[in-house]
Amino acid sequence: MLELENISAGYKNKRVLEGVSLNFPKGKLTAVIGANGSGKSTLLKAIVGIIPRESGRILADGSDLSALSRRETARRIAYLPQGRSVPDMTVGQLVLHGRFPHLSYPRRYREADRRIAAEAMERMGMLGYADRPLASLSGGMKQNAYIAMALAQDAEYILLDEPTTYLDISHQLGLMRTLRGLADGGKGVIAVLHDLPLAFSYSDLTAVIDGGRAVMSGSPLEVCRSGIISRVFGAELVYDEARGQFGYAYPPV
C-alpha cells in the first residue's frame, strides 16, 4: 500500500497541494482525476520527490519515503511523466535504462539487466522493436516502450501522468487494458486521467483532486453517485448498469 498522509507541496511561491491524504493499494488501478490545475500532476511529482514535500509523509509498504534515497524510491515507484522528450535512442536502450536505479557506480548494465529488459519488452509486445529508434514509433508504441521501461524498473507501484494524451481512441483503450493487466498482475497502478468515462470504466478506485485537496476517494460507482463530479467538473457522469459502463450525460444542445 502506498499511503499519503497529509501531504502539502508546491512550487517556489505557490503551494499547490494542501493536506492530501490518500491510499493507493497494490493490485489496483487508481485513477486520479480533477480539473486542469487542480494539482494532479503535482501530486505524482511530490510522491516521487521531484517536488519537495513541505509537510506530511508517504509510506510505501510501511517504509517512509523521506528516509529513502532517490534510487531506493525509484526501485519502489516508477514514474512516467506527461511531457516527455523523444530521446535519440532505440527502444532496447530506453527499456534498459529502467534498470538504472538497480545499479551502483560505475553503472554498467549486466547480462541479468538485459534479460529483465528483454522480458519487459516481450510483455509489452515491443521485443521486435528493440532496435527501432524511439522517434520512428507511433504515439501508442512509444507509450508501450516507456511502460516497458517502467516494468524493467521492477517497481511495485507505477505512476503515470496523463498517459492517454495524444493517443487515438483505439490506443487509449489498448493502454487502459495494459494498465488493467498490470494491476491484475499485482502492481499498484496510479494514473492521472482526463477522460472520465475511460477512467471510471477501467479503474478499481477513483481519487478526486480539487483545488489541491483530495475531496473524495472510492470505487468509481461511489464517486459517480456522490454528485462530486458535477460539482468539480460541471459535467454529469452516468452509469449504464446494463452495460456496466460510464458515460457523460450531455445537456440538450
Partner: peptide
Amino acid sequence: SELDVLTLGEESASGLGM
C-alpha cells in the same frame, strides 16, 4: 550511463532515481 539517462529529460531521469 548517467549521461544517457539525462537525455531522457529532467523528469524521466528523476523518476529513475537520478
